[in-house]
């Protein structure tokens, strides 16, 4: 079966970086902050590539980003590891999950995608909503937190990581699948492929061309970094630890 897989990717601050807040608490300090493709989305790109590599049919992998010109570098990373196409929806405003899902739903329909693979959450706002919202807007089945995918006669069999254990569902296509950490380990781009990706075209669409207005759903009032440090009492050994937990902290 020929198939088009759409992979929404988000550009997020590198998770190894310490996040600082602007002095007025209006948001994070973006100066000199390095960015990466959201790690869960990188897993989604990798899975799409593996589906293409293991298929006898035509599979097209389209990476989609929403944001400013700065996004080009991260989209080229997806091209460098093997995505067939990359598309940037130009939009300067910061978007919440609802508006991301609305934009994606228009792109999915325009592109007539068969499968959307995306990270279960973006590691900046940690909302874990966009995939579910997109599935609801499209009225497509969803399988969140995927740790294994297999194609079957009836659709896509997905192992899901839930609090209770590994759940297995079969979703009919078209569907939205969100990826969890253990689905795969994304490959690295080789230098020749990085150089090749630089010459590829990134398709661009202006947000206004989609016929949508932004409908804000969440308003940020303030951000702060809470101190989590505690005064650690170094105990001399097991005996002191037990005494302190029992008589001082009273937790055992």
């Amino acid at each position: 079966m020929n198939m088009k897989i759409l992979v929404p990717t988000k550009r997020v601050p590198d998770t190894d970086q310490k996040i600082r807040i602007r002095p007025d608490g209006s948001g994070i300090d973006e100066e000199n902050l390095p960015y990466v493709v959201n790690p869960f989305d990188a897993i989604a790109v990798e899975e799409a590539l593996r589906i293409r590599e293991n298929s006898n049919d035509e599979v097209e992998v389209l990476a989609v980003g929403i944001g400013s010109d700065d996004y080009e570098r991260e989209l080229r990373t997806s091209l460098a590891i093997g995505a067939d196409r990359a598309m940037l929806i130009e939009c300067a405003a910061a978007l919440d999950s609802w508006n991301v899902a609305r934009i994606l739903s228009v792109i999915v329909q325009r592109e007539q995608a068969d499968l959307v693979l995306m990270g279960k959450q973006a590691v900046d706002d940690d909302s874990n909503q966009a995939g579910q919202f997109l599935a609801a807007l499209l009225d497509w089945p969803q399988a969140t937190f995927a740790s294994k995918l297999d194609f079957t006669e009836n659709g896509l069999r997905v192992a899901r990581e839930t609090d209770a254990g590994i759940e297995t569902v079969v979703v009919r296509l078209p569907a939205v699948v969100t990826t969890d950490l253990r689905l795969n380990e994304p490959r690295y781009a080789s230098l020749p492929n990085i150089l090749r990706a630089r010459k590829k075209t990134i398709e661009r669409l202006e947000f206004q061309q989609l016929g949508l207005e932004i409908e804000p759903r969440i308003q940020l009032l303030h951000m702060e970094v809470l101190s989590t440090g505690r005064n650690c009492i170094r105990v001399s050994g097991v005996d002191e630890l037990v005494v302190r937990l029992r008589d001082e902290a009273k937790v055992i």
Binding site: Q129, Q132, L134, A135, R160, T162
Partner: peptide, 20 residues
């Protein structure tokens, strides 16, 4: 994981005003 999956989708049906 249950609520993220199920209630998240319900929020998508109800207009997307959701805080996690």
């Amino acid at each position: 994981s249950y609520a993220k999956d199920v209630v998240g989708r319900a929020a998508g049906l109800l207009g997307g005003s959701m805080a996690s």
